[in-house]
Amino acid sequence: MNDVVCLRNVTKSFHQRLVVDDVSFSLKAGEVVAILGPNGAGKTTTISMILGLIKPTDGAVLLFNRQPHEKQVRERIGTMLQEVSVIPGLKVREILELIRSYYAQPLSTDELINLTGLTDQDLITRAEKLSGGQKRRLSFALALAGNPELIIFDEPTVGMDISSRNRFWETVRMLAAQGKSIIFSTHYLQEADDAAGRILLFNEGKIVADGTPEEIKARISKQTVSFIIDPDVSLEKLYLHDEIKDIYRKNNRVYVQSDHTDRILEFIFQEKIGARDILVERGKLDDAFQQLTSSNKEAI
């Protein structure tokens, strides 16, 4: 019961359209979790419910065992929303001071500047005149202003250049090392793999996979054994092994798909079917990911 975040059977529909469908998961202190999924998967909607910005149609969301909108919760969380917004008419330094004043134990302005890489020039610029990437940096600083225990980012790196991006993930890793709990959403498996210890794979409002990046990758990237074989040889015998997920012929080669390619090799030699030029391949992760989260509704 020491979960930082706990969602139980959370469902959200907009005008009878199911957008988040019976989502349950919980987060322990210090976990870094990526919510990975394509456009429209329900990432932002889920995050909005965690933040208490919208109410679930059904189910419960608890942060630190409390309702998301309670002040005690607000003191302990920080966030960067998908649509970065800044208050117009104020300079960056003024905004930082303003937001810091909302919290009982804020980080100092200097710490925020160090963490986020805001420059002296940024600090005296009015928020509406910042570039997209500079706004992101400000928004990152605002997320950290209250020295939160739980930090939630919705697609944090959109619009950042490579160096800001690297710097951002570096800071995130440092925060994780300090024991902060972090949730972020992303479209990219790579990002989730690099930064998170756990991935929640979202598709069409459901969690379709929940595990470490390695588990997720193993699950979604298909491994195949392929070989050349005399066209007259029957593959009947191979069909009998239930380790095999799929067999097909393409350009003279036979492709055998399985999670345990070593076993397949064993079969091939045991059955003495005369396979030549044997190759073991791991499918491209990105392709598999794309296939998984494109409109096909097959569960993995």
């Binding site: 933040l51 208490g52 607000r74 003191e75 649509e83």
Partner: peptide
């Protein structure tokens, strides 16, 4: 979206 941000602060 500024109001949304303010709402998640204390």
């Amino acid at each position: 979206g500024w109001s949304a941000f303010i709402r998640i602060t204390p």
